[in-house]
Each structure stands twice: as C-alpha cells, then as structure tokens.
Design a protein around this nucleic acid. Structure first.
Lengths: 341, 341
DNA sequence: GTGAAAGCGCTAACAC
DNA sequence: GTGTTAGCGCTTTCAC
C-alpha cells in the first residue's frame, strides 16, 4: 500500500487540499475546527508531507549544508556537533559535504553544492582560492563561515590574533623569556589562516615584550598530536638550547609537547610550561592550561545567523567575534629562576 | 535571471525534454549526436538538474541518512568520515541525524526520518528499544547497522567478543595473571552492547586460563579519557592490590590509564601493561598496544552494502564481520617476575 | 532513437 | 476561512 498523500487527508477530513496544507504548516488562517479535523485525519492516516513535493512547490527545503575539510578532527567534529544541534532544534535537515583534505574539493564545489537542494550553508574553516569562492557563491544561497574568514560572507570565529597574543602574554607574565611556538602550516596560503593569525599574536606579544623570536623554536606541524610530539621532542632534546615555555596553537599539539617533554624526563611545568588553545578533552587529564574557543558554540551561532537571515531578519552581513576564555591548569608555571613579572 | 531549466536545454539543443533527461542521466538510448548537442547546450547554459524535481518525479533522491548518538567522539566521527567518503564517491548526498545522547532521540525517530527524503540509512552503534526499532523501520527504507547490532537489519562490525578475548589473551601470554578491565556502562541495556561483548571476551579468556576475575578490577567508565584516568588512578593507587595489566575497551580510556599510571610513578609496561582497542591516533604517541578496528572502513562497507542493495544487487541481509588487527607497541610487556608463557 | 504528455505530491495565488 | 487550480521541474510510459 502506498503512503497516504495530502489528498487522502483532505478527503478524510472533508476539506480541500489547500486547507490541509495550511492547517499542517500553520501558514494562513484555518478555523480551529477544521484544523482539528485535519490533524486528526492526518494522525489516523499516519500522514507525513513529502519532502520533495513540498520543496519543489515552495522553493524552500528546510535543509542546510555544512562544508568542511575534515570530519574526524576535534575542531571540526565539535563545530559540527553544534551545528547539528541548532539545526535539529529548528527542524532543519543537515547535509554534510566533506572535502576530505583536497580529495573531494572539486566535486563538492562543482557538483554537490549546485543541486539547488540547500536553503543555506555553513563553511567551516575553508580556505578557498578566489575562483573556488566564486563557485561556492554561485550556488546562489546564503553562506556563513566558521573559524576562518570566508571572503564575501559573514564569519563567526574567535579573534585568533588576540588569543595567540594572550596565550603568549600569559607565559611572559610567568617570567618566561625563551618561548617557543607550535603552529600549523600555511600551505600556499590555503588552510589555516587561523594558524597564522595565532602565530602573529605570538610574535606580536614577543616583540612587545622585547623578547627574541628564535626561528628554531617556531615549529610548523601538521596539527596532529603525533607530529607535534615528534617535533617537540627534537626541539626539547637539546639541553643547551631549548625554550622554557611553548605556546601551541592547539591542545592536541600541546598534548604532544607535554608527552614529549615527559619522555625526555623533563617535568611540566618545572622545566617546561605549555599552553594550548581549544579546551580539548585530552587537556583535562594532562592538566593543560588552555584557552577555550567554544567550538560547539561557534557552530550554533553560525546556524542562528543563517536562520535569521532566511527568515528575513534584517541582519547585516557582519562578522561575529566570539569570546575565548582562559582555563588555567597545571601545565604553566613560573620560569625557573624567575620571580615572575 | 532564473536558473536554466531542462526545457531551456532542450530548446537550445533542438530536442525534446525527454531526450535531454535521457542524455544527461545516461538512462535509455540516445544517439551520440543528440547526446553531444545536449551536453554542449547544458554546459553553455550552466544547467544542473533540480534535485527536488528529479526526486519527486523519479521517487529516488540519491540521499542517504546517517543516524548516530554522538558526533564528536572518535569512533563516530571516524565512521562518519568513511561513510562520507563512500557517499561522495558514489555521488550521493549525506543527511546527518544526531541523537546527541538522548536529546533528539525522539525527534529524529519520529520527525526527521519519516520525511521520505532518504533512499536508505545507516545507523551507527544505536542501541534501540524494540519500539524505537519499529519507528526506524517504519521509514520504509533499507537500513544497515554499524558497530553494533541493529536488530532486523544487516550489520557491519568487528567481532567484539573475539577482540576482547584476543586482547586479554595477549596479556595472559605475557605472563600476567592480575588483569583488570576498563569498559563502558550497559545503561539499562541501551548503548554499548559493543562494550559488554568486549567485557565478555575478557571474562572468557580469564576463565579459560583459570585466572580470577576480581570485580574491583573491572572498571566501568563513561568511555572518556578523563573519567578513565580518574578511575584507573583510584585503582592503581593501592600498591598492595593492583593489577599488573589492564585491557581497555577503547584507546582513549587506555590512554587515561597510562597517564594515571605515570602520574602515580608507575612505569609502563614495567609496572603496568595496557592494551586498548581502536587505533586511535593518541595511541601512537603513548606507544599504546592496540587492536585496530578499522572504524573508517566500517563506514565505507556499510555504504557499499546499502548502495548494492539499492541497485538491486542480490545481497542477502547477512551481517558482515570485519577483521581487526593487532598493533603491537610498547605499552605491553612481560609481567614482572614472569618468564612469559 | 525520439517526442508528447501524463503525472510525481504539494503550495500559493486567486476567487469566493 | 475555504476551495479551485495552475504550476514547481523533472521522469517516464507509450506511441511513433
């Protein structure tokens, strides 16, 4: 037996299909008596509107896309969790498009996003070429960026430069002068503006304090714990020339640094202070001092912005900077032989 | 200007809409000459078929759903990555439905899945009540389960009991006799059959070897690193009555145990051997011995099964057990005072 | 191999 | 407040 259609509900309730549509969607006026009969009939028949028919007729699909370069990395899956929650709450469907690094970059941009099935989309930390940005926008729907600038669309993020600055200042305030940095690559200008902004914040804080920035202490990693572990270990192995503190652009890399230090017999924070960014759960067990960037909340805000926009709320396309908060734990402490500052 | 429709392409190519549809979808026979003209016209106009119109007319949507209880946990985001990859490869869209624990359980089951917008769906480690399973299937589409039994649908997973058994045997083979277990809750029979099967494997191996199962060494954790850290620390704090080895049902919990041991001044594996399951990246830096369950591959396989089914391939709804492989690293070693076995 | 035309199931004017 | 009806843009018989 074929599923009930709106027409069947109309027949059973003794009204027209238009009335059923109105009663069920809540748009337009329907007498409460008619509404009741419709709802009952729909209930009895187990009627659910056909998504495709509804979308085709109305031109809107209650479906929002999420485009991201990775899924199984903490930042992305956490933002996604926030996006998902906000969308579920609003009754919207969520379509997921994963670049998977660069693997499906083209495909997603040229095929998937153009199918006219999305009301809007959020782009998480994508760093696109100008031509790619154009492709994106050619989908003809509102976009909002998260965690990195999406040129031409409003973006929700933290102030990465400021966060890098504050993290570094924290270490400087503890009396450290030999401070290293663990950051990400800025592959040919793609990806990780986030990362380069944090590095810029570090450099600014160092410069302001009149401290030297040793290029050897400025480590470029691929943002994974293991890679950071290995590189930090190399850096810290030299007892004559190693930093007393490290500011890491992510908690996972910070964790790698802490594990490396321990494996070298260095104690944290006595021999080495480490601060990260994220509030990644792994930081708890390591006592990692960090700055919470409220990743989930970033996803939630992005969705709110989009939904407001769709519903015609008069929001100007301004960027939104979310606050980030210190979580002081045990991985940072006074520099050896320092009285603080 | 409104986007081009199929009709526009037809006009430009000088053929009927039917021919355009055939030429573009590849179904039905079209002269290569006509096909060429159609493709060119489509190209010039920048035509992309309307998803909704196509779905409404054909009854199929090239859209597959993924239902999971969490997104931001390693297992789930990794499976999701695999699912996403396989779907992108096949040109299918992916709709994401997150229970978020129990928060949207009802909503997803009763509202979202019934909108007739999915061709099929994969359910990742859902542990449903019978009534909920019925709701799920009432969507009228093929399902496949991943990483946990979905009663009434084919499931892709590893053999959790066997894996628990092998992990424990590994420790026993190293001469350990006092072996603890770190597993998850079986909340009222919901969630984590996975976890209870691994525990059962542990118990069987212990029993077979004639070793005692000390209830105090069988720790129930919430599967997070931090919780496992705390509980393991409590367990290991007592020098007179602690295990010499721990089998953890996940790598994250295993990592917690290792960190706890270190913080107590115990050395791994000299004082404590630890083995996990997952091949979680964190295990690398900790030298964690583990069993790789190929989570991403589980997602890929689930999608393949679904697509085969949709395309009418004669696949019986059998469960599929994927192999799991040892990754021997440094966290497990011979028991102190043992000659091995 | 190709075209005509009848839907797919719903929404949104527009009329009453 | 409610019904009539013309689409939304494509797929798919059924003829030719």
């Amino acid at each position: 037996m074929t599923p009930p259609r709106l027409q069947d509900v109309a027949a059973r309730a003794g009204v027209s299909t238009a009335t059923v549509s109105r009663a069920l969607s809540g748009k337009g006026h329907v007498s409460s008596r008619a509404k009741l009969r419709v709802q009952q009939a729909a209930q009895e028949l187990g009627f659910v509107v056909s998504y495709h028919a509804s979308s085709l007729a109305s031109g809107r699909s209650r479906n929002i896309g999420v485009v991201l370069p990775h899924i199984d990395r903490w930042y992305f899956s956490t933002v996604l969790e926030g996006v998902s929650r906000a969308l579920l709450e609003a009754g919207y469907d969520l379509s997921l498009y994963n670049f998977d690094g660069d693997r499906y970059r083209e495909t997603v941009l040229t095929d998937f996003l153009l199918r006219k099935r999305l009301d809007a989309a959020v782009a998480v930390a994508l760093q696109l070429e100008p031509a790619e940005t154009r492709q994106l926008f050619s989908a003809g729907i509102p976009f909002v960026g998260v965690g990195g600038p999406l040129v031409g669309a409003p973006t929700v993020s933290i102030d990465d430069l400021d966060v890098g600055h504050r993290a570094t200042q924290h270490l400087i305030g503890l009396g450290h002068r030999r401070i290293g940095h663990l950051g990400g690559v800025d592959e040919q200008g793609r990806y990780f503006t986030m990362s380069s902004n944090r590095r810029a914040g570090y450099e600014r804080a160092m410069t302001e304090a009149g401290l030297p920035i040793d290029p050897e202490w400025s480590i470029v990693s691929d943002y994974t714990l293991m890679d950071a572990y290995q590189r930090a270990k190399n850096l810290l192995a030299d007892p004559d020339n190693r930093p007393t503190a490290i500011f890491s652009a992510s908690d996972e890399m910070a964790a790698g640094a802490i594990l490396a230090a321990r494996d070298l017999g260095l104690s944290v924070p006595a021999d080495l202070s480490v601060i990260g960014i994220d509030a990644h759960p792994i930081g708890e067990a390591l006592g990692l001092t960090t700055i919470d960037q409220h990743a989930q909340q970033q996803g939630v805000r992005a969705v709110r912005r989009l939904l407001d926009h769709i519903s015609g709320a008069d929001n100007e396309p301004t960027d939104e900077i979310l606050p980030a908060h210190f979580i002081a734990r045990a991985s940072t402490g006074p520099a050896a032989g320092s009285s603080g500052s």
